[in-house]
Amino acid sequence: MGKSRRGPRQQFAALPWRRTEAGVEVLLITSRETRRWVIPKGWGKKGESASIAAAREALEETGVGGRLDATPLGHYRYQKQLKSGRLQRVRVAVYALEVVHEHEDWPEKAIREKFWTTIAEAATLVDEPELRALIAGFSP
């Protein structure tokens, strides 16, 4: 596996959340290949704003929609392994998404699991240290 010599590429993510009688919950999903717990994220499309890209990824990957903050909560970095074996450095801007709609069907339903959980538990389930800190510090 070679290392990337380029600067990091940019992805956009949503941190879906909701209020329940028990308190605030956040939504995690499994990644497609490694089945790790992550938040919905992906590449932006040409002409698409960062926040719209984050909202689209949340809808495609989890079937949720709602009110998205226009300003990112923060950023985290990770290394994405490409099919070639090369590692690509990625910087992810994360936007809070207050969930208003949860659809019964969505494009990636068959390939991902969803898990609503507390902020504290979600922070222990993700692997990336910067994402863990971002979730742990989240307060809507």
Results as ranks from 00 to 15, higher is better:
T34N: 14
R32V: 11
P129C: 00
V126K: 00
W17Y: 15
I29R: 11
L68N: 10
E104K: 07
P8C: 04
R35D: 14
E21Q: 13
V99P: 13
T117Q: 04
G65T: 12
V90R: 03
D105V: 13
L28P: 10
A54C: 04
R5I: 05
A93Y: 11
K83F: 13
G44D: 11
S31W: 13
V92Q: 02
A14C: 09
S4R: 05
S51N: 03
T20Q: 09
A58W: 04
D127M: 03
L134T: 02
I39L: 13
H101R: 13
T118N: 07
R67V: 15
G44I: 03
L15K: 08
G65I: 05
G7D: 10
I135E: 00
L131C: 01
E25I: 00
T117M: 06
V90D: 04
A50E: 11
G44F: 08
W37N: 00
K109M: 03
G47L: 05
K3Q: 12
G85Y: 11
V38Q: 09
G65K: 12
S31E: 14
A133Q: 14
F115S: 09
W37Q: 00
Q10R: 07
G74R: 05
L131T: 02
Q81S: 06
T117V: 08
A22T: 13
I52L: 10
E61A: 00
V99M: 06
D127V: 07
E113D: 12
E60H: 10
Q11W: 12
E57A: 05
E98T: 01
P16Q: 04
G42S: 08
E113T: 02
Y95I: 05
G44L: 03
L125R: 12
G23F: 02
T71R: 08
I29Q: 14
T118S: 15
V126L: 00
L82A: 14
Y78Q: 11
T71V: 14
H103R: 12
G66T: 12
P107R: 00
V64I: 10
V90P: 04
R35Y: 07
W116R: 01
L27E: 08
R6F: 03
L15M: 09
M1T: 12
D127T: 11
L82K: 12
K46C: 11
R86T: 10
L15H: 07
V24I: 12
R112F: 00
H103E: 15
P129Y: 06
A55P: 04
I39S: 09
W116S: 01
K41W: 10
A136T: 07
V90M: 04
L15T: 07
W106S: 00
A70Q: 15
T34I: 09
A58M: 07
E21P: 09
E60N: 07
V38I: 15
E108S: 02
G47N: 10
S31T: 15
R67A: 13
L97N: 01
K41Q: 15
A14K: 06
H75F: 13
E130N: 01
R9Y: 06
I111G: 00
L125V: 02
I119V: 15
E33R: 14
T20N: 08
V94Q: 06
R18T: 06
